[in-house]
Design a protein around this nucleic acid. Structure first.
Lengths: 336, 336
DNA sequence: CTGAAAGCGCTAACAG
DNA sequence: CTGTTAGCGCTTTCAG
């Protein structure tokens, strides 16, 4: 295997110079650099990242910790990180939070992770207190994209405003009896996307002088399946049933729409439904929603991390991401 | 930072022994091992992966090269790799094939990747000849999950059979005029999922003594949006329009269903639609499809890679994955 | 079963 | 601008 010494020898310079030249550092004359680059390519030299990591103490990889990768928000976000890292020669190491097993593995119990990355981007909807504690323990640039985590910089939308604003839209249309499909597990903390969205809903309802009806409250887990299931339960509500249903995610809203169709409930004539997220399936299905862009959020977070790594203190900070009410065909005034 | 030497000193043994003990290698007495493990934990020792990589030449990370992460098949598959790697202390490094930019970046032009991983799992629907050549060039365990790549071991379903069998289902129902929504780009190669699915469709049609009508052939790119768009074009077909439409992916099929509804075309009364994949949205929407499990496929591929790495020659090989026709509510006999 | 010592291939001062 | 020279923190023979 050809190493830096071979290149140095072949180019008639020292390894130090080769190192500088290859990495594009200053203090190398253009001629020397050109020659080195040429012989490096000629010899097919490829730096050993392992050696470089050991010597420099930098891994040039950033870690992404996510609960799932096969869910809309997370998939989009990971894609965003990749996009940002790609051209800068940074690597992306994917770690799983273990969202599917209870209890989730203790965050960073495997401290191994520590030494494998220079910075961490955390993707999540919520964290348990114990996990938050672990997080505060790690000593490297960190940003969370998605839900807010007390004490950590984060980039994400204002979920409270999002929930309030879709609900307001429903109310503005004249709905007075609105069902809620949320993902608020009792075990969740105060700072969790599911809970915040519920709060936004309640506030909107409240402000309109309506009352929040717990009996018209459905629980789901943010998947399509749970939307389908929720719609079945909705059908069993005593009449008069709510004229609209506000879902805490587009994925659940889509499930509701699918099942509604199966049940012969017309949308929006018989029932208005809204979601939150901006899933492309929702766009195709004509779902009214609050649009957000996880890819952009992740890119922003990644850039902050990179900036911090390149010495820019305070580069990582809180940032509220863009969101927008997108009215489509799944909402209409309730029938008189 | 506490290093192996600190542990060795504290435990009163040599670094070599600590190394063996920590890694669970044999040739360490139970007592010594216990003591070392204890002091290591006590000191909060965490091995430096960089040093270990350099010294051992192994990175204990496997690379996943994918064109997208925010698409059903790929998201599921990446999840599968993670699942398999997680408990074995292996890392997952995610690389992008650059599916979104034309031309895709030359595969492994950045040979850097080489030294960062011990094995590679490639996720793709198809590859260009040039990329295949590059692939044959890399010297490490390799498996592709998804489309077949000449000369490389792969695990995936028999796409030809899949396409043929959903089409047969349609024919069996009595459809004689079936539209095709495919993703067969002219630039694609012979060995590409899009093309193979088209072939399966043609064969089914042929065998039934029907003719393949290029005019009833719609092009899409495997996204929901392209399904919506295709359905709009379908509406412009001269009457009598096809009574069924076979889509090369569930995502496209869902787009077709959404737009059909918008156009007032009832499914399956006015039009039968089928897809391929087993997307959970399809299940919720009642889409008839060929089910497959990308997560399982990726797990299988990962396990092969791991086995190969642990010395098991020939562990990586071709394997055809499970698939199954799932009949739901989107198909019915054509109207008389 | 355990220890000594020679690297692994680069980077980072520090000189020149 | 370029070269010298220590390491970086493990793993791995090879002895003992």
């Amino acid at each position: 295997m050809v190493g830096i010494e071979d290149v140095a020898a072949a180019a008639g310079v020292s390894t130090a110079t080769v190192s500088r030249a290859i990495r594009g550092l200053p203090r190398v004359s253009p001629r020397t650099r050109a020659k080195i680059l040429a012989t490096a390519k000629e010899l097919g030299y490829v730096p050993s990242s392992a050696a470089s990591r050991l010597a420099s103490g930098k891994t040039r990889t950033i870690g992404v910790l996510a609960p799932y990768v096969d869910r809309w928000f997370f998939g989009k976000a990971i894609d965003g990180v990749e996009l940002e890292l790609h051209d800068r020669g940074y690597n992306l190491s994917l770690f799983n939070l273990g969202g599917r097993t209870q209890p989730r593995e203790r965050l960073f119990s495997k401290a191994m992770v520590h030494k494998q990355i220079d910075a961490l981007l955390l993707l999540c909807m919520y964290l348990h207190q114990e996990e938050i504690d672990d997080l505060h323990t790690i000593d490297m640039p960190l940003v969370v994209v998605g839900g807010p985590v007390p004490g950590c910089s984060n980039v994400g939308i204002d979920d409270y405003a999002a929930a309030k604003s879709v609900t307001d839209h429903l109310i503005g249309l004249g709905h007075r009896h609105i069902a809620l499909l949320h993902g608020q597990d009792d075990s969740d903390l105060n700072f969790s996307v599911p809970r915040i969205r519920v709060e936004g809903f309640r506030e909107a309802v409240h402000q309109a002088g309506l009352e929040f009806n717990p009996d018209a409250s459905l629980f789901g887990n943010f998947t399509v399946e749970s939307g389908v299931e929720a719609m079945r339960r909705y059908m069993e509500f005593p009449a008069p049933r709510p004229t609209a249903i506000m879902c805490a995610s587009d994925e659940m809203a889509l499930g509701v729409m699918f099942e509604a169709r199966r049940q012969g409930i017309r949308i929006p004539e018989d029932l208005s439904v809204v979601g939150i997220d901006g899933h492309e399936m929702g766009a195709a299905a004509g779902l009214t929603t609050i649009w957000q862009d996880p890819t952009a959020q992740a890119r922003r977070g990644t850039r902050m991390l990179l900036a911090e790594l390149s010495g820019e203190e305070g580069a990582v900070h809180n940032e509220t991401a863009e969101q927008r009410l997108v009215v489509r065909e799944s909402t209409a005034p309730p029938r008189p």
